[in-house]
């Protein structure tokens, strides 16, 4: 090495005392840094690395879970939709059935009413017929009595008798109606 102890002020001279002190200083710093500082820092760095990796894993797991729950939810929703559609279908059928039933009932009722009305009309007609027949009989006998009571010579007289009879009849009818009113 460039050790020149002879020269008093030579900068290229190595002072072995300083050399030794320098070595001691380096050793002290090295042991401190290697034993305490750097391993601690490295450990924390590794731990953080692990934590971040673990965090990512946790996040992935949570995401998978959420996906599963979403899937379940979606299935349930679909099921609900399906059930709703079924219910709707059923309701429609029921409605149709109810309408058909009601319509049938209504028809039956209508038919019954019509029949009753017809029966009533028939009965009225029968009654009127019976009454009319009675009246026509008495009127005929009455008319016949009048005709016989008059002289039945000429047809004009006969006609007059008939006309008068009918007038009377009409008048009596109208008076009867007026009475009724």
């Amino acid at each position: 090495m460039l050790v020149e102890l002879a020269a008093e002020e030579n900068i290229l001279r190595i002072d072995w005392v300083k050399f030794a002190f320098g070595l001691i200083a380096l050793a002290v710093v090295y042991f401190f840094v290697a034993r305490k500082a750097v391993p601690k820092v490295m450990k924390v760095l590794d731990e953080r690395h692990d934590a971040i990796e673990g965090g990512i894993e946790r996040a992935q797991r949570a995401e998978a879970e959420a996906e599963e729950i979403r899937q379940q939810y979606r299935e349930k929703l679909e099921e609900a939709h399906r059930e709703y559609a079924q219910e709707l279908e059923k309701a429609k059928e029921q409605r149709a059935a109810i309408i058909a039933e009601a319509r049938e009932e209504a028809q039956v009722e209508a038919r019954r009413i019509v029949e009753a009305a017809q029966a009533q009309i028939e009965a009225d007609r029968q009654q009127a017929f019976v009454q009319l027949r009675n009246e026509i009989g008495s009127l005929s006998t009455d008319l016949a009595g009048r005709i016989v009571g008059e002289t039945l010579n000429d047809s004009a007289a006969q006609n007059r008798v008939v006309d008068r009879f009918l007038e009377e009849l009409e008048q009596s009818e109208s008076t009867k109606q007026a009475e009724v009113r």
Binding site: W16, K18, V29, F32, K36, K43
Partner: peptide, 30 residues
Amino acid sequence: GSDGIDLYLVLLVVALGASLLLWSWFSKKL
């Protein structure tokens, strides 16, 4: 064969102390 104890060695001790302080400060309560 030596200059003896002079300014350089004092500064060396200061530098040593500064290095130790720096690293104990960096590695404290991580």
